[in-house]
C-alpha cells in the first residue's frame, strides 16, 4: 500500500518537474532552432536547415554596429560600477557613518525607481539639459546610477567579510591607503568584483528602455534597441531575423558568464560560512 503510494508520489513529482522543465526549456529550444530554420514560426520545431537567416541579418546596416554599441555601453558601465562601487563599499564597510545601513537600504530601494519607467521623464529632462542625449555617456551614466546601490550593497558584504587585521597589518608596515587597496583589499574581494562586473554587463546588455529613449541616432543604438526594429513595414515581426539576432546577441553574455564562473567561481560570502 505504502509502496504504491510512494510510487504515485514519485510519478507526480517527476511529471511536475518535467512540466516546469518544459516550460523553461521550450523558449531556449526555439532560440537554438529558429535561427537555422528557413521559415521560423513562433513554435519550436525541427528546422529545415539553412544559414540564410544570418546572411540576411548581416545585410541590415545596424546589426554589427549595434553589437559594438552594446559592448561599449556594457563595458563602460561595468567598469564605472565596479570602480565606484568598490570604493564606496570599502569606505562604507570600514568607516563608521551614522545611519549607514539606513542609507544603503534607502539607496537600494530607490535604485529600482531611479532607472525604472517612473523616473524616465526626469531622467530624459536631465540628460537633455546636460547635453547627454544621443551619447553613449548618457546611457552609461544613467544605467550605472541605477546599478550602483545594489552593487555597493553586495560588495560591502564582501568587504565586511575580510578581516581588518590584514589592512592593519599592512598599515603597520607603512602601506598607504591606496597600496592597501591595491595590494590587499582588491585581491581579496576579486570574486566579488568579478560578480559585480558580470552582473552589470548582463544588466546593461538587456536594458532596453533607457537606450531607447536616450539615443536618437540608430548608429549609436545597442542591440536591444535594434532588435526592436526587426519588423516588416506592415508591423509584423521578422521571426527569422529576430531569432537569429537574439541568438547572436545572447551568446557573448553566456560565454562571459561561463568564463568568469570558471575563473573565479561565483562566491557570495553572505550568510553561509564556508
Amino acid at each position: 500500500m505504502t509502496d504504491a503510494r510512494r510510487a504515485v508520489g514519485v510519478i507526480m513529482r517527476a511529471t511536475f518537474l518535467a512540466a516546469v522543465l518544459g516550460f523553461f526549456s521550450l523558449p531556449l529550444l526555439w532560440l537554438a532552432s529558429a535561427p537555422f530554420d528557413a521559415h521560423p514560426t513562433i513554435t519550436a520545431s525541427v528546422p529545415s536547415l539553412t544559414l540564410a537567416n544570418f546572411r540576411s541579418l548581416l545585410d541590415n546596416p545596424y546589426v554589427l554596429s549595434s553589437l559594438r554599441n552594446s559592448v561599449i555601453q556594457a563595458a563602460a558601465s561595468a567598469a564605472l560600477v565596479v570602480v565606484l562601487a568598490a570604493l564606496a563599499a570599502y569606505a562604507l564597510s570600514r568607516v563608521r557613518v551614522p545611519g549607514r545601513d539606513a542609507l544603503l537600504y534607502v539607496l537600494l530601494l530607490l535604485s529600482s525607481v531611479v532607472t525604472g519607467t517612473a523616473a524616465m521623464v526626469p531622467l530624459f529632462e536631465l540628460a537633455t539639459r546636460l547635453n547627454l542625449i544621443d551619447t553613449h555617456l548618457g546611457v552609461v551614466l544613467t544605467l550605472s546610477g541605477g546599478l550602483l546601490p545594489a552593487a555597493i550593497f553586495i560588495l560591502k558584504d564582501f568587504m565586511d567579510a575580510t578581516p581588518t587585521s590584514y589592512e592593519e597589518s599592512a598599515r603597520v608596515f607603512g602601506a598607504s591607503p591606496l597600496q592597501i587597496l591595491g595590494h590587499i583589499v582588491i585581491p581579496l574581494v576579486r570574486p566579488g568584483l568579478a560578480t559585480i562586473a558580470v552582473w552589470a554587463v548582463a544588466n546593461v546588455w538587456g536594458s532596453f528602455l533607457q537606450p531607447f529613449i536616450l539615443l536618437r541616432d540608430p548608429d549609436k543604438a545597442p542591440g536591444s534597441v535594434i532588435l526592436y526594429t526587426l519588423y516588416t513595414e506592415g508591423g509584423s515581426p521578422r521571426l527569422d531575423l529576430i531569432s537569429t539576432f537574439s541568438l547572436l546577441y545572447s551568446l557573448p553574455v553566456v560565454v562571459m558568464y561561463v568564463f568568469v564562473s570558471r575563473r573565479y567561481g561565483f562566491r557570495f560570502h553572505g550568510g553561509i560560512k564556508r
Binding site: P163, S165, S169, A170, G174
Partner: peptide, 18 residues
C-alpha cells in the same frame, strides 16, 4: 603606524592569503 618603525604580529597572524 607605518612611520613608527614597529612591527606587529596579530593574534590571527593576518598573513595575506593571496
Amino acid at each position: 603606524p607605518g612611520r613608527r618603525d614597529v612591527a606587529m604580529v596579530f593574534q590571527d597572524y593576518a598573513l595575506f592569503p593571496h
